[in-house]
Amino acid sequence: MDATTRRGDEAARAANSPRVHDFGLLIKAATRLEQRIDTALRRECGIGHTMFEVLIRLCRQPGEEVSQRELADDLTLTSSGITRLIDRMEEADLVGRAPSPEDRRSVLVEPTDHGRTVFLQAVAVHSQVVERYFVVPLAGDDYTRLTRALGEIHKALREG
């Protein structure tokens, strides 16, 4: 067997390894679920999944002051990416901006009344999709184990 064939066989074994396969399943499932959520939110509420994520963050603690920088960090977006997103959301009357009273370089973002209304509609749509494709396919114990395991993975990634 020549070196090229040997490397090809090694590469095939690596590509078909259980860790590569299992992680691929996780990514494919998450990606497809996010696509289903995004499609449903756009169709039913006129917003995409990323806008929904912004509204979740802004509605989580009423009266909390959330800066654009915090939103960018929470959503893992660049400062220019969050600026463009908030621009679009402001144009759609979903959010408003205000200068921070503590830091004149910082801009605070808050949901509008219309944004809260759209968010509540979006939560219902999101819940239906998640229930159908994330909860129902699993037995009760499997769902509990999965969510607990995902929490542990998230914790390890935050700490690591």
Rank of each mutant, 00 (worst) to 15 (best):
D38E: 08
T112E: 05
D141H: 12
E10M: 13
D93A: 03
P111K: 01
L41Q: 04
A15L: 14
L33C: 03
Y133K: 05
N16G: 11
R69G: 04
R88H: 13
A139W: 02
R13L: 13
I47V: 07
F119A: 06
T31K: 10
L55H: 02
G81K: 01
L75V: 10
C45R: 02
V66T: 12
R116I: 09
A122M: 05
L120E: 15
H126F: 10
R43C: 02
R60H: 10
L71E: 06
D9Y: 07
L55C: 07
D87V: 00
L33G: 09
A15E: 14
A92R: 01
P111R: 00
L75I: 06
S106M: 10
S106F: 01
Q68N: 08
E65F: 06
I56C: 14
T144A: 15
E102M: 05
V118E: 02
G140E: 15
H126L: 03
P18R: 12
R88Q: 11
A40C: 00
A122T: 03
D73F: 03
V66M: 10
T117W: 04
L75E: 09
R84I: 06
M51I: 01
A29C: 01
R13Q: 14
A139C: 00
R69H: 13
I27P: 00
E110A: 09
A30R: 09
A14E: 15
R42Y: 01
P111Y: 01
G160E: 12
Y133Q: 07
E131R: 06
L26Q: 07
I56N: 15
L25P: 00
E91N: 01
L77F: 06
A156R: 09
P99I: 02
L33F: 07
V107W: 08
D38C: 08
R69E: 15
V118N: 02
H154D: 12
S80N: 10
Y143K: 01
D93N: 05
T117P: 00
V95K: 02
A124L: 10
R105M: 12
L75Q: 09
L146T: 11
G24P: 00
R88Y: 08
K28N: 14
E64M: 05
D2A: 01
L146F: 09
L55F: 05
Y133I: 03
Q128R: 14
T147M: 13
A149L: 11
R42Q: 14
K28H: 13
D87S: 11
P111A: 09
I27Q: 07
A156Q: 09
D103L: 00
A124Q: 12
H126T: 03
R132P: 02
A40Y: 05
D22A: 11
K28T: 12
D103A: 01
L146N: 05
P99V: 09
E10L: 15
R43E: 14
F23K: 11
D38L: 05
V135M: 08
I47F: 02
V136Q: 13
Q61S: 08
R36L: 15
H21T: 15
V118W: 02
A98L: 12
A149F: 11
L55D: 03
